[in-house]
């Protein structure tokens, strides 16, 4: 019980950062762009591998 109380007191003293609306919008814009970029890169690697190797992509030494 005492331990929980001391943690709550400690959290009260923590210096926290709160985002403004502009900062939230900017963060969302960056997150969406990064998500799209990563998805496109995965797609590019997938399609590129098929284009480069063709049916050979299935041939693997066992």
């Amino acid at each position: 019980m005492d331990w929980h109380m001391s943690m709550a007191d400690a959290n009260k003293d923590l210096e926290t950062i709160s985002q403004s609306d502009k900062q939230k919008k900017a963060q969302r814009s960056r997150s969406v762009a990064l998500g799209i970029a990563l998805a496109l890169f995965v797609l590019l690697v997938y399609i590129g591998t098929w284009a480069k190797l063709g049916a050979n992509v299935l041939i693997r030494p066992m």
Partner: peptide
């Protein structure tokens, strides 16, 4: 998680980024 930048004026205070995707473009 918010992207926190060092203040450009060399102060110790940090600020949250307001950079949009268009700024990176």
């Amino acid at each position: 998680m918010a992207l926190v930048e060092q203040n450009r004026n060399g102060e110790n205070a940090a600020r949250l980024s307001e950079a949009r995707a268009s700024d990176y473009i």
